[in-house]
């Protein structure tokens, strides 16, 4: 059964997420300097690895690096609307925006939450929705658990791939944890004191 929540309901997933091929060793770069970490943080995919990525037929979500490096090859499929892009948590939405004329030609952008406590995706989603005007599906993938769904929704996600070992059914309820948030965000840009006359 599908574990995908989209627009407030559990739906079948018509997309295939394309991962990087497994490599023997994942190297976590110990960033020596913050300025360096800002750009890289984690070992970026090598050209060889990018070239190795197998892209199946149908609707697929490819890594940002693959999207950028193999754009010519993917061009007809992009035009056909069957290419989505996923970003790792250290990748910058600006790099995606810079690599495409109109961000809304992408039917789907997915953002990976490598760990429950990594909140970079909240800013990334906010930027995509506000600064870059992205209107299509924005999907949270990775360590996606119900207790962050409300925050994800507020930051502009509209689809959540709930971690496989958890119930999407249970997670649905958490989207309504709070009824009137204090501050403005993507889903409701006005703070509560601009929405309502308060005593």
């Amino acid at each position: 059964m599908s574990n995908l929540i989209k627009n407030g309901a559990i739906v079948a997933d018509t997309w295939t997420l394309v991962p990087y091929p497994a490599i023997d060793e994942t190297v976590q770069k110990q960033a020596g300097k913050v300025v360096q970490f800002k750009v890289t943080g984690t070992e970026a995919a090598s050209p060889e690895l990018i070239a190795q990525v197998q892209i199946p037929a149908g609707q697929v979500i490819v890594p940002l690096t693959v999207f950028r490096a193999r754009k010519d090859e993917l061009a007809p499929r992009i035009a056909a609307g069957e290419i989505g892009v996923w970003l790792e948590s250290f990748e910058l939405v600006e790099d995606l925006v810079a690599s495409i004329d109109d961000i809304n030609t992408l039917p789907l952008i997915a953002y990976d939450f490598p760990k429950f406590v990594d909140g970079r995706g909240f800013s990334a989603a906010t930027l995509l929705r506000t600064r870059y005007g992205y209107k299509n599906e924005l999907r949270a993938i990775g360590d996606v658990l119900r207790d962050k769904l409300y925050f994800m929704k507020r930051c502009g996600f509209d689809a959540y791939q709930i971690r496989a070992d958890r119930s999407a059914e249970d997670a649905l309820a958490s989207l309504r944890d709070f009824s009137e948030p204090y501050q403005g965000a993507v889903d409701e840009p006005l703070p509560v004191w601009r929405r309502h006359a308060r005593a």
């Binding site: 429950f116 406590v117 990594d118 909140g119 909240f122 800013s123 906010t126 962050k148 409300y150 925050f151 994800m152 929704k153 507020r154 930051c155 709070f178 948030p181 204090y182 501050q183 965000a185 703070p191 509560v192």
Partner: peptide, 13 residues
């Protein structure tokens, strides 16, 4: 206080 309470973008700094 109100602004920072459950601020969604800064929930996992």
């Amino acid at each position: 206080r109100q602004w920072s309470t459950f601020h969604p973008e800064f929930a996992a700094l």
